[in-house]
């Protein structure tokens, strides 16, 4: 059985996918993952998940965020001087994310 492995570098970070292991059950998968994926890279925690339980949808199948204009969802559509700093931070994150999303959706056409 194949288990996908997700590693968290340090406390508070997200667990991100880093590889997989063959193992007969969850406990064995943890033992194997600990050595295979945690022995050298900085690791605070590992998760293992049965590969068969993972579903996937990707840009081959769908255009994430839609194909028609959804700019009403983005702070930068509302053209005002930069607001308080917490709004400004969110806005720049959004601006970056939307640029990346568009390049994926449109690059795929």
């Amino acid at each position: 059985m194949i288990w996908e492995v997700f590693r968290q570098k340090k406390a508070g970070d997200y667990h991100t996918h880093c590889g997989n292991v063959h193992a007969p059950d969850r406990d064995m998968a943890l033992l194997f993952a600990e050595v295979q994926h945690g022995r050298r890279m900085p690791t605070n925690s590992l998760w293992v998940v049965p590969k068969d339980e993972i579903g996937e949808v990707d840009t081959e199948d769908v255009a994430f965020g839609g194909t028609t204009d959804k700019s009403y969802r983005w702070a930068m559509t509302y053209n005002f001087e930069a607001a308080a700093e917490e709004v400004a931070a969110s806005e720049s994150e959004q601006s970056e994310a939307e640029q990346q999303r568009r390049s994926v959706v449109e690059g795929d056409d």
Partner: peptide, 14 residues
């Protein structure tokens, strides 16, 4: 949440 919230406030401001 914080990532998305900027839109909300600016939408309200508009």
């Amino acid at each position: 949440v914080c990532f998305e919230e900027g839109f909300h406030v600016k939408h309200g401001e508009a």
